[in-house]
Amino acid sequence: MATEDFIAVTGDDWYQRRRQDEEGEFFRKVSDQAGRGSRDSGGGSTRQGIYCFTASGRLLAFKNAGQAPDVMREVLKDALAKWRKLPESERRPGAVTVPELARTDSRYTRTPPPGGLIVNVFTRLLDRDANGELCDADCKGNRGDEAARDHLWLTESEWRSLAPARAKRGDQFPLADKIAERICRFHLIDNTRGEPPLWGREEVRSRKFTITVEEANSAGIRVRLDGAAVIATHADASKADRGYDVRLMGYIHFDTAKDALDRFELVAVGDHWGDGTYTRGARPGRTPLGVAFELASGKSPSDRVPPQAAREIAEYFGR
């Protein structure tokens, strides 16, 4: 139904409700009809939910249903019934003229850095089986049972620093500070139950990431990244109410002919503990959490979804 009968689109309410341009105004016009949010200067309260509406902005159905498929199905059925009752003049192709956007509010739009790298980031709650091997955690129907998703953005100069042109086999050098800090503060997080607090700079208590060149020839450069970090809300991690004691390892490959990275695969695993205001329900104690990184294909619109932490874009890039 969502595919055949609707044009399906997603949005991050944090940006949409704030942006002062035609798109933001159009969204708020639709959302106002559902009685959502407010129009104060700070963007107002949340307008999140499932909306169905016409291209002219007439609301057909709304529900703040989170990710409940049954509820979404009912909203779609309701909306479709109302859509079919509209006069043909409102439904026919071309019934509404949609102009080109005259401008976009750059404060609340994010695009990947030109020439930069988009990396998928997945986070999963783990457990240990009888042999001590890490396995998928069984959350028994509670939140956090599936892999969470985010993106890591690197600028062109950053990704080029990972496999420098003059690298020789056996060379070792530290991961660039800005990349290491970005990974620690914004991507070694437990986002499996929603938007978690991001780590403050001072909460990265220790980190060490080393790049080792494993292969360097005319075809390309392969490096291995090894690292470890202790991130905690208290200087003494044993007293912290939230933290992550984590190891990281992975491989990065630069393809000379493509003049591009064609592999960026990392794994971070360690014990995480604690939760945040919007991520209540963490498992008790210190439990394994895994984070996996891999290059985005770039073929899906979802690849362009900005990193969660990019709302504060200057801080995200360490500027």
Partner: peptide, 20 residues
């Protein structure tokens, strides 16, 4: 408007296709 269909918008605090 080109296809003569209504719009389904999934709007969340935290992008539904990203971090939610």
């Amino acid at each position: 408007t080109r296809e003569g269909k209504p719009i389904l918008l999934w709007e969340m605090d935290g992008h539904p296709l990203g971090c939610t």
